[in-house]
Simulated scan of single mutants.
Amino acid sequence: MNKNTDTFIPKRDVSEFQHLVAAIFQCCQERLQYQSERFGLPDAELRCLMQFEGERYLTAKTLAYRLNVAKSRVTKLVSSLVKRKLLASRPDPADSRIKLLSLTPAGGLLLKEIGRFRFEVHRTVLEQFSDEQRGELLHALSLLSRHMKSVKDMMA
């Protein structure tokens, strides 16, 4: 998978990278748990709701793809969010077999509140860095994201 097969990467570097990624992932998982508790939604429903950011309508099929879950799982998530009056479901005017899902006004307000919370969490993390460190961090994370995506694409 390494583009430059002549590059030697010490085992300790790979181990440290694995450890750091795992620690960051764990921290993110804990934040997601806190977020779920704060907004009174199970994590899966919260993630489903967040898919509507910037979207007018979505279908169950689109949600299943984005969330990487079975359509039957999305049906349960959507049903719960409809019961909570956070999502609305209506037939597609072009094809009545398809249901268009959209945020209700209450769902839109909750999504904005979640967005503000997430923004503040990330802003608070970035406050811990100097301007120079912040620039270096964002550059390094951009590189990391790009390289992780390229390895994922090679694995597919």
Score class of each variant (00 low, 15 high):
52 F>Y: 02
52 F>V: 00
53 E>S: 13
53 E>G: 10
54 G>I: 02
54 G>H: 07
55 E>C: 14
55 E>M: 12
55 E>K: 15
56 R>Q: 13
56 R>K: 13
57 Y>E: 06
58 L>A: 03
58 L>G: 02
58 L>S: 04
58 L>W: 01
58 L>V: 07
59 T>L: 05
60 A>H: 11
60 A>D: 11
61 K>M: 13
61 K>C: 14
61 K>P: 11
61 K>S: 15
62 T>P: 04
62 T>G: 06
63 L>E: 03
64 A>R: 03
64 A>D: 04
64 A>S: 07
65 Y>K: 14
65 Y>H: 14
65 Y>C: 11
66 R>F: 09
66 R>D: 08
66 R>T: 07
66 R>V: 05
69 V>S: 05
69 V>T: 09
69 V>K: 06
70 A>D: 15
71 K>L: 15
72 S>L: 11
73 R>H: 11
74 V>D: 00
74 V>E: 00
75 T>L: 14
76 K>C: 10
76 K>M: 12
76 K>L: 13
77 L>R: 01
78 V>K: 02
79 S>R: 12
79 S>A: 14
79 S>L: 11
79 S>P: 04
80 S>I: 00
80 S>N: 11
81 L>C: 02
82 V>C: 08
82 V>M: 05
83 K>G: 14
83 K>I: 07
84 R>P: 03
84 R>V: 02
85 K>A: 12
86 L>A: 04
87 L>K: 05
88 A>E: 11
88 A>H: 11
89 S>A: 14
89 S>M: 12
90 R>N: 10
90 R>F: 10
91 P>N: 10
91 P>L: 08
92 D>R: 03
92 D>T: 02
92 D>L: 01
92 D>V: 03
92 D>Q: 04
93 P>E: 00
93 P>V: 01
93 P>G: 04
94 A>Y: 10
94 A>V: 08
94 A>G: 12
95 D>C: 06
95 D>E: 09
95 D>H: 11
96 S>C: 12
98 I>N: 09
